[in-house]
Design a protein around this nucleic acid. Structure first.
Lengths: 211, 211
DNA sequence: TGTACCATACAGACAGGTCTGTAGCGCCGT
DNA sequence: ACGGCGCTACAGACCTGTCTGTATGGTACA
């Protein structure tokens, strides 16, 4: 999405570059987004001010507001980036199991289970932001909703290939379960959520197959 | 979830005020807590300032700070009240099914499913606060953790009476699932979370029994 | 080669508002 | 008279977003 710093000279004549002086415009934007993402995730979005972001990123506040119109836009960009990263990991697993949907699902659960068991894991960013911002029209909330719908959509695809009776129901069950693992990991003993997630999912898959 | 406006404490009707409080004091405290609870839950804790609370409650800010040392204490009191209300509802169900643990569990899931399907449902307050406050030593986080442990403890008690092989595992599975329903309800189609929760729980219980 | 131009970068002050928490004053009921 | 109440003002910090000013390095044209 941040895209090529390449040229697209539009209305203005003869000016064929938007590269900026040192060509580090995209670099600055990236540094801001990375810094903000880490801070937002670790401390909570509302608890982190833009002053802190610019300090930690080592950029000027004007730079932040050139790349992101408002803080809300920055929050949305944070969730979009998390969304991308999540599906990148997902797709990597998918491509390892092109023919065996059961193995693919197991692998996804392994990967998610490992993720939620990490020491500094602080929950799913999409769900955390949803908890912080009640307004469903907030730009970041839209990203979060789309993310969760996409999760269910992909789970349904796998369930269909598993040839269970009601793939959409199994997808819904697994969605509940995965979201539950996301939020519960901080409340359980460390390292417990992952195995529990896998065991529960297995039970649900077995049940869905028999039915 | 909270916010029944006419509730009116019912403690200290007016007689024994030898502790210096004059009946009005408990009433003021109650009004503050009720108002804060509704606002915290509906808009998020960090988004609600004490000025708004005192305005809506129709009390003086000094009264708020007389009854609650800091805003953090007020937040913790909010979660404690939610915790009490939740277990009151739970216990009411429990007492209707003293002899049949399967029916009791079903009834709990019905009740929770109904709750998460309500129009203004905005997730579990304990989980929402946990998402807003990263610091696990925050007084409100302690309340939230205790609440979730208590949930698992009670589920384990039911699972034991169900005579499944591994009651603790079933309790963990149901905890994941219930927390998942809490957070997912806003992301699913309205009214979908409740039935999905029940169906999933049934599958897990059946699987646990066979094992 | 030189120079004007342009976009971006950084630095820092500022505006206007909100936040939590405290203090002084007068009112009222016991 | 005393203690809780409401009201108002305040302190000091923090918030988002804007503004001014300066430095830097590419591109275009002479």
């Amino acid at each position: 999405m941040p895209a090529s710093p390449g040229s697209h000279s539009a209305g203005t004549p003869r000016n064929t570059n938007l590269d900026g002086a040192q060509g580090n415009s995209a670099e600055v934007r990236e540094r801001i987004l990375q810094t903000a993402s880490a801070l937002f995730y670790q401390r909570g979005v509302r608890a982190v001010g833009v002053d802190l972001v610019v300090d930690e990123a080592g950029v000027a506040k004007t730079s932040l507001y050139r790349h992101f119109r408002t803080k809300d836009d920055l929050i949305a960009a944070f969730l979009e980036r998390e969304d991308q990263d999540f599906w990148n990991g997902w797709t990597r697993v998918t491509e390892l199991h092109k023919t065996d949907p059961a193995a693919e699902l197991e692998a996804h659960l392994d990967w998610i289970g490992e993720r939620v068991g990490r020491p500094n894991y602080r929950g799913c960013p999409q769900l955390n932001v949803a908890a912080e911002f009640p307004d469903v029209d907030h730009p970041a909330r839209r990203v979060a909703s789309a993310h969760k719908q996409e999760l269910r959509r992909r789970l349904k695809g796998i369930a269909e290939r598993l040839r269970v009776k009601r793939p959409d129901e199994l997808a819904g069950q697994l969605s509940l379960l995965i979201n539950g693992a996301f939020v519960s990991s901080q409340m359980l003993s460390p390292g417990e959520a992952g195995p529990l997630l896998r065991a529960t999912a297995r039970a649900l898959i077995t049940a869905a197959r028999k039915q």
